[in-house]
Simulated assay, not measured.
Amino acid sequence: MADSLYPLTFTPVLKHYLWGGRNLERLGRILPPHGVVAESWEISGHQNGVTAVDNGPCAGRLLTDLHAELGLDLIGRNCAWAQARQKFPLLIKLLDANLPLSVQVHPSDDFARTHEGNELGKTEMWVVLQAAPNAELILGVKAGTTPAAFRQAVESGRLEPFLHRLPVKAGDHICVPAGSLHAIMSGLLIAEIQQNSDTTYRVYDWNRVGDDGRPRPLHLEKAMAVINFAQVEPGLRPPELVAEQKGVRRWRLCANQYFVTERVQMAAGATFTGACNGESLEIWGVIAGEVRINRMTLAAVRFTLLPAALGEFAVTAVTGATLLRTYAGA
């Protein structure tokens, strides 16, 4: 088991959806020569796209196989809820919204378990890595929206007046609990941290057609059952500064029952020390600059998984660097 307890990196799994483009090349992803790529699944134990380790003694092994072998030593005691369902808890993605995504919603754990077999619900969060001028996204509904009026607007193909739009720019973060009506609009490159789920209820698809020339299916009945209509015109939340010392500043971005995500800003030469003591895995993503994590060098944009039983670790900034740190809270 000791051979498996080191910072793990993975070969991404690429996903092809009609709203994607070629912009993930700007983040260092190697894309097929033709066609569009919408998502890069960076760390995934989901059956629809399991990532394989690409470094160290475990190179070539699937994350699901490591999880089956290591259990809580990989994911941590704070993720016992996921272990009980034999699930890796999180899924890390990069998204290229070259075109708008559909207006959609994700279910809670309870709803997903009832209606989608052993699939988890999907609480997620986004960090905007790059944004075109005037970029925006949709989160929640406009004031005065009722479920009946909303449904009628979907069925008549005129949902736009009920959608709450938020301007966004590079560096912004957005917390998206299960039940949030949302859509990522065009011109955005985003890092997404979410529960390990691939369940999406499509509500509205801008009256467009899919690759086969036909409208993509909607999931209106399930969507209406899970949309939080009380989420009225939410705004962006400011980051919360939680620590500042010796060239390292940490801000909490989102915290929920499944994960906590921080932004970590490091001056060149600064070091952050921590310990994976069995409570939780940690996932670190370099979104600008270059760092060393123990003996491994990691440059933007890459993610690494620190097993829960790893023990002490050190992150040292080779250059000035910005990172995302995710772990499961108590």
Results as ranks from 00 to 15, higher is better:
Leu8His: 04
Ile293Glu: 05
Phe111Ile: 07
Ser108Trp: 04
Ala149Leu: 13
Ala225Lys: 10
Ile30Pro: 02
Ala135Gly: 08
Ala223Lys: 01
Trp251Cys: 08
Gly49Thr: 03
Lys15Gly: 09
Gln231Lys: 11
Thr322Met: 11
Gly289Met: 08
Gly311Ile: 08
Glu312Asp: 15
Leu163Gln: 02
Ser108Cys: 07
Asp96Thr: 08
Tyr17Gly: 00
Gly117Trp: 10
Leu218Gly: 06
Asp212Glu: 13
Leu298Thr: 06
Val264Ala: 03
Gln83Glu: 15
Ala321Ser: 14
Tyr201Cys: 01
Asp212Lys: 12
Arg295Lys: 14
Pro238Thr: 02
Phe259Tyr: 10
Ala82Ile: 06
Thr146Ala: 01
Lys93His: 04
Arg249Asp: 01
Asn294Met: 08
Arg61His: 10
Leu324His: 01
Met1Ala: 15
Trp251Gly: 00
Arg214Phe: 12
Trp126Tyr: 13
Arg208Ser: 10
Arg165Cys: 04
Asp109Thr: 08
Asn48Ser: 15
Gln195Lys: 02
Arg252His: 04
Thr145Ile: 04
Met125Gly: 09
Arg295Ile: 08
Pro133Tyr: 10
Ala243Glu: 14
Gly45Val: 05
Trp19Tyr: 12
Arg208Phe: 09
His16Glu: 15
Pro238Trp: 03
Val53Gln: 03
Pro32Thr: 05
Ser40Gly: 12
Pro100Lys: 07
Glu160Thr: 11
Glu42Leu: 06
Val248Trp: 07
Ala270Gln: 11
Asp110Asn: 12
Ala52Gly: 09
Gln130His: 13
Leu66Phe: 06
Ala178Trp: 02
Asn207Asp: 11
Glu39Thr: 05
Ala308His: 04
Pro234Cys: 03
Glu262Arg: 07
His182Ala: 02
Ala84Gly: 11
Ser44Leu: 01
Val232Lys: 03
Cys79Ile: 06
Glu160Ala: 15
His46Gly: 04
Ala270Glu: 10
Trp19Val: 03
Pro147Phe: 06
Gly285Leu: 10
Arg250Met: 13
Thr273Ala: 15
Gly171Asn: 05
Gly76Ser: 10
Glu233Ala: 13
Ile30Asp: 15
Phe229Asn: 00
Leu139Gln: 13
Trp251Ile: 03
Val103Pro: 01
Asp54Pro: 00
Ile190Val: 15
Ala80Ile: 11
Ala80Gly: 10
Val209Phe: 12
Cys79Arg: 10
Asn55Val: 07
Leu310Ser: 06
Glu160Val: 10
Leu90Cys: 08
Lys169Pro: 00
Glu25His: 11
Trp284Met: 06
Pro215Phe: 09
Ala191Lys: 01
Cys58Lys: 13
Phe88Ala: 03
His16Cys: 02
Ile138Cys: 01
Ala317Gly: 06
Gly117Ile: 05
Gly76Asn: 11
Glu279Met: 12
Leu166Met: 09
Asn228Thr: 03
Leu94Arg: 07
Leu62Phe: 13
Ala131Asp: 00
Ser280Pro: 03
Tyr327Pro: 00
Leu5Ile: 06
Asp211Pro: 11
Phe88Ile: 12
Thr304Phe: 12
